[in-house]
Design a protein around this nucleic acid. Structure first.
Lengths: 183, 183
DNA sequence: GGTCTCATGTAAATAGTTACATGATTTC
DNA sequence: GAAATCATGTAACTATTTACATGAGACC
């Protein structure tokens, strides 16, 4: 039994907001969901074709406002109903891939200095992410009543904020622990 | 340029602790690292062969204590040196796959009840994980001085504990937010 | 003329899971 | 004798990324 192909649901989710081209979907994902989910063009374009042939989306070419023609996709009634079915299903776990944790876990083979560098880099990355999150939060707060999906986005975003804050605390604690291992 | 194949480093990391069979490695990963990293037999066995042919590990058959023969692998000096090199490199980000977040994000298309169910399920899963973590923490604390790698494992484990505690707080907050959206 | 953004798509390769095949030993 | 655990491995498939090919329009 194959694992569920989640690109299709991601696309359907995006199109449930508004009609988009493949490029739009990619940009939307990269701007809004980048820390929770990502897709590449290599997945997006073939899946868009499949969804059209299944009647879950409708596509039509439109002249680009500035640039080439755009292939704009809209979700159909059938697509919306499939999306709702998928949303109601429990989330499937993805195999965990925390490379930072993996490296720290095995750092005895290299020494505490190496682990400390990983923690330091993670702190910097996390600080940058937190700034992005706070900016997004302010933006979404300001337009909270403009669209009915904003509250859901905020719920997810606040999970991200909690995650980054927790990570920074962990960095503090871990640096103390690891410095104690220094020769 | 292909993405780095991280199965090899995972194997080398495990063998830096002690010699293991493929079965041992899988069991070790599933018992100790399951929430941070995972590998399947389909990746493990072929990679073990590749590592042997590259001289990073050495393998020899041994009679099983209870059961069939075991193919036991040990890390070589060259393997240890390669592992150290990889450990010193910055961690590569993995594409994020938080399906819970994805579903909550798009839950406007299905309604707050659906989002609340996801949060509820996540809480239950997280509670179970937290129990496991606490048990592991107690076990590792008790044997802290028995092996020099335990402090590194504890650092990672405490990240997991913080993560689960943060998640439970998020579930509380999100349930309040989502209940306010109920009709 | 050069570079950036907009825009669509394909080909090749990798990474990874799942299911299957096989069989020994131990425990009930 | 059934079931669980120990143990190795392969085949088929899916998911996914990366790199490439292509080109229009805007801006400097």
């Amino acid at each position: 039994m194959p694992r569920p192909a989640r690109t299709r649901w991601t696309i359907l989710g995006c199109l449930s907001i508004r009609p988009m081209s493949g490029y739009d979907i990619k940009a939307f994902l990269d701007r809004t969901l980048v820390h929770f989910w990502s897709e590449s063009y290599g997945q997006l374009y073939p899946t868009l074709k499949a969804l059209e042939s299944e009647g879950l989306i409708e596509s039509r070419m439109e002249p680009g406002e500035r640039g080439p023609e755009r292939n704009v996709h809209s979700i159909t009634r059938k697509g919306r109903s499939e999306l709702r079915k998928w949303l109601a299903l429990p989330a499937e776990p993805s195999p965990p891939r925390y490379e930072h944790s993996l490296k720290v876990f095995f750092s005895h083979a290299a020494g505490p200095e190496v682990a400390l560098e990983h923690v330091g880099r993670l702190r910097e990355e996390t600080l940058r992410t937190l700034e992005e999150y706070r900016a997004s939060e302010a933006r979404l707060e300001a337009m909270r009543d403009e669209a009915p999906w904003i509250p859901y986005w905020l719920v997810v975003l606040r999970g991200g904020i909690r995650y980054t804050e927790m990570t920074l605390d962990w960095c503090d604690e871990s640096e103390r622990e690891l410095r104690a291992l220094l020769p």
